[in-house]
Structures are given as structure tokens and as C-alpha cells.
């Protein structure tokens, strides 16, 4: 039974949390990679777009809760999500018109757009703090567990427990649906193909009669929807804190670069690669080693959790050194 216990422990402490976290990173990285593919710059404001959108979702959630509206076992935030996406889209389109369009018309170098996005990041960050404050906010309501540790022990008779939280299952389901819808849109629809064509060859897309401003608007809308969804799922799974959304930018960038910037499939794969590496490196493996018959005094933890961002850095450096176009052959940085 020890091997079974070890497997359950791995599932409970590594696979499930990493899968949920990976899905959140994947959604974030999809937004970054789409912006990169179409607008040709790395959007530093993406993390704070996630934060701003999530803040709006929380406000709407509170409003719905005050009105007594809920989704039963599912978090009310799910109901607030479309409203949050719509409001964030308006803001993001406004920012594009006020800031990025100017540089796009001037055909500025990508680095100038990147710097502009750093400015946008600071403003959005301040705006979010102003709107909702800097404190940690928990906004998950409804049922907490799909499978709780006690239930699992009772079912299986194993000493090791396993839990699956509603927010984790929800993250995986929503991410799967979002990816399915996005890839279907990109591969089947006329507008989606126009986006890919524009990403592939801007000049030829122009010659073919594709309107670049429409492609750009569509890209911002999709990126905003993905960002708010990712931010809300991340907030439901952990908690909402503005600063955490600024920090999550690094693993998101790592994910999109690992997968190959501009390649949506790569962004999804990259999200899971970064998440699994981060969790596997920071998890203390002693308990699992003990189940398998290796008793040690050490924690068998390669890196303390405070240093988890180092994992993203290392992945970034390795990829940039050995395969700058990423695993799925995106554009080189």
C-alpha cells in the first residue's frame, strides 16, 4: 500500500496544485503570446490587467452577494466574470487608443512599446489599488471541496489523504473550455485566420485586405478576456492581492517564452511546464521518499518556496541560451 500512498501524496501535493496553477499561467501566457504575435511587443501590463479585471469581478461579486444572488455550489464570481471581462475590455481598448496606437502609427521599435506598457502597468497597478485596496481578499464562496481528505480516506482506506478543491476543478474545466474555444476560433473562423495571417506576415495581410486595426482590437478583446479569466481563477484558487498579480508576470512570461512567443499552443504547454517545475522543485519530497522506503532526516526540498521565482528565471535563461525560439518554434525574442 505504500506505493499507493506515495502516488496519492504526489497527486495531492504536486500534480493537482501544479495543474491548477499551470492552467492559470497558461491562460495568462496565451494573452501575452497573442499580444506579442499581433502587436509585436511583450506586454508588461498583462499581470496588472489581470489584477484590475479581478478587482472588478470581486466588486461585482460583492454586489451580487448583497442582492442575494449566488450560484449554489459554484463561486458567485463565475457569474460576475462576464461583467468583469466587458469592463476590462473597455479599459484595455481605451488604453490601446490612448497609448499604443500612437506608437503603432509611428511604427516604433518594439522596445518603445514595451516601455510604454511598463508605464501602463504602473498606472493600472495604482488604479487597482485605488479601486479595491492592497489587502488580501478572499472571494470564493459556494462549496469548498469536490473531494475532501476525510471523504477520500473513508472511500479508499489509505492513510494518505487527497483533496480536490472546487476552485481547482473549476480552473481546469474553464481553462480547457477557453483553450478549446480559442483554438477553434483561430483555426476555423475567418477573423481568427485573419489574426494568424497578420501575425505571420503583416505586409501580406495588409495586401490581402485585412484591416490591421480590426485585428488589433480583436486581439485586445481576447487578451482581456483571457487575462480576467486567469486572474479570477487564480484569485479563487489562492487569494486576491494586487502585488501577487504583479509577481505572477514573471512565470507567465517564462511560460510564453518556453512555448515560443507568438505560438498559442506553446503558451499552454509552457504554462504547465513552468508550474510543474516550480511545484516539483519547491515541494519537500521526504514523505514520498519515506513511503518508498528511503528514510532521511532532510526535507528533500530542492528550493525553499520563497525562491520559487528563481525557477522561472532558470527556465527562462536555459531556453534563451539553448532554444531562443522556444519549444514550439515561436518568434525569437
Amino acid at each position: 500500500m505504500d506505493i499507493l500512498n506515495a502516488l496519492v501524496a504526489i497527486l495531492n501535493f504536486v500534480v493537482i496544485p501544479a495543474a491548477a496553477y499551470g492552467a492559470q499561467l497558461a491562460l495568462g501566457a496565451l494573452g501575452v503570446t497573442l499580444i506579442y504575435g499581433i502587436l509585436r511587443f511583450s506586454n508588461f501590463a498583462h499581470g496588472d490587467t489581470m489584477a484590475f479585471g479581478t478587482a472588478l469581478v470581486i466588486l461585482v461579486t460583492w454586489g451580487l452577494q448583497a442582492l442575494g444572488i449566488s450560484l449554489g455550489p459554484l463561486p458567485t464570481a463565475l457569474l460576475a466574470l462576464p461583467i468583469g471581462i466587458a469592463l476590462t475590455s473597455v479599459l484595455v481598448l481605451g488604453v490601446d487608443r490612448a497609448v499604443y496606437r500612437f506608437y503603432r502609427r509611428k511604427r516604433s521599435a518594439p522596445i518603445i512599446l514595451v516601455m510604454a506598457s511598463v508605464g501602463v502597468m504602473f498606472i493600472m497597478n495604482g488604479l487597482t489599488r485605488l479601486v479595491i485596496g492592497v489587502d488580501e481578499i478572499r472571494f470564493d464562496d459556494g462549496a469548498r471541496f469536490l473531494i475532501s481528505v476525510q471523504q477520500f480516506r473513508a472511500w479508499t482506506g489509505l492513510s494518505e489523504g487527497l483533496s480536490l478543491r472546487v476552485s481547482q476543478a473549476l480552473t481546469l474545466v474553464v481553462t480547457a473550455l477557453a483553450c478549446w474555444a480559442l483554438f477553434r476560433f483561430l483555426n476555423r473562423s475567418r477573423a481568427g485566420k485573419a489574426m494568424r495571417a497578420y501575425s505571420d506576415n503583416e505586409d501580406l495581410a495588409l495586401l490581402s485586405g485585412i484591416d490591421p486595426e480590426r485585428v488589433v482590437r480583436l486581439t485586445w478583446l481576447i487578451a482581456a478576456a483571457l487575462a480576467v479569466t486567469a486572474g479570477t481563477l487564480y484569485g479563487l484558487d489562492k487569494s486576491f492581492k494586487v502585488f501577487n498579480y504583479f509577481q505572477i508576470l514573471l512565470p507567465i512570461f517564462a511560460a510564453s517564452i518556453v512555448g515560443g512567443l507568438g505560438n498559442p499552443l506553446g503558451a499552454v504547454a509552457g504554462g504547465f511546464i513552468v508550474a510543474f517545475s516550480e511545484v516539483a522543485v519547491t515541494y519537500p519530497w521526504r514523505k514520498i521518499a519515506a513511503y518508498l522506503g528511503f528514510e532521511t532526516d532532510g526535507l528533500l526540498q530542492l528550493l525553499s518556496t520563497e525562491y520559487k521565482f528563481a525557477v522561472s528565471f532558470v527556465i527562462l535563461i536555459v531556453v534563451l541560451l539553448f532554444r531562443p525560439t522556444g519549444l514550439f518554434r515561436g518568434k525569437s525574442v
Binding site: A194, R196, D203, L207, S208, I210
Partner: peptide
């Protein structure tokens, strides 16, 4: 054009579709 005259990551059929975009 002499160079960069296709959409490389799109299929042949999609390239033709984009040609007919208008």
C-alpha cells in the same frame, strides 16, 4: 512580392483563403 510572399504557419488552403479575404 519577391520575398515574404506567403503565410508560413498557415496551410496552403488557408493561404489561398486569405488571398480571397476581400
Amino acid at each position: 512580392p519577391q520575398t515574404h510572399n506567403i503565410f508560413p504557419t498557415m496551410t496552403v488552403e488557408e493561404n489561398l483563403e486569405m488571398g480571397a479575404f476581400i
